[in-house]
Simulated assay, not measured.
Amino acid sequence: MSAAPERDPPGNPQRPVFPGARGFTVTLDGQDDEGLRLLLSGTSRLVRMDQRNFQLDSAGHVLTLGLVRAFHPAVTAADHERALAALTTGTAAGYLLQVAPRDGENFRLHMPDQWPDEPKPLAATPLELPGLAQPR
């Protein structure tokens, strides 16, 4: 992150947003949906995904975090034409779709249960770990 993150106003403590997820594999259930078709159109789209019982591997330990939300304003789907064809022909159930933010950026992850002010914007918090380059 090249610019300093926006800070929450006084009295509203900043909550961390983990910035290190480059992409996800999503298993399609075969259900046709306008939002999915927009993602499969080949242009980048806003994507927000919830994962219950999210697990994070860290130094050989598995941490179960519970509900985690991943989001990014500009996500693309790899092999979108093939996925769209499967959706159109009714064969998309079980299709493994790779999704990732454009330009090598990362998804932003947060725990919505820890964010009671859902309508307020999230500010990404740098990890500030010595020797670790901040993800974009």
Rank of each mutant, 00 (worst) to 15 (best):
Q31W: 04
T125E: 09
A74Y: 05
V68R: 07
D117Y: 08
G60F: 01
A3C: 08
L65T: 01
L40I: 02
T76L: 07
L122N: 02
T76C: 13
L87Q: 05
L46P: 07
L63E: 11
V17I: 15
A4Y: 02
L67Q: 06
R102H: 05
A77F: 00
P112F: 12
P9C: 09
G30R: 10
P5C: 03
Q98M: 11
A3D: 10
A86L: 06
N12S: 13
P13Q: 07
L39T: 02
G23F: 09
A124F: 00
F24W: 07
T27G: 06
P10F: 03
T25S: 07
T25E: 09
T64P: 09
A74Q: 05
R48Y: 04
A93C: 06
Q114L: 07
D29P: 00
P130E: 11
H72G: 07
M1K: 00
V99Q: 02
F71M: 03
R69S: 09
W115M: 10
D103C: 10
A100V: 08
L96H: 06
Q114N: 15
K120G: 12
R22V: 15
V17A: 08
N106I: 11
V26D: 03
G66E: 06
E128L: 15
V26T: 03
L46I: 00
P5R: 00
T91Y: 09
F54S: 15
G20F: 05
R82D: 12
R45D: 10
T25F: 14
P5H: 13
E34S: 10
L56V: 09
A4T: 14
V68C: 10
T88K: 00
A123P: 13
L67E: 04
R108C: 15
E105V: 11
P135S: 15
H61Q: 12
Y95S: 03
D8T: 04
E81P: 03
P116T: 05
H61C: 06
V75P: 01
D117Q: 12
F54T: 13
R108E: 11
G66L: 10
A59R: 13
G104V: 07
G20L: 15
Q14Y: 02
A78P: 00
R7H: 11
A85N: 03
T64F: 01
Q14D: 14
P116C: 02
G35Y: 03
A93Y: 05
W115I: 12
G11R: 01
H80F: 00
A74R: 12
F18C: 14
K120Y: 15
G66R: 07
L96C: 03
R69M: 08
L46A: 10
P19G: 14
F18R: 12
L56R: 15
D29A: 08
A21I: 12
E34L: 10
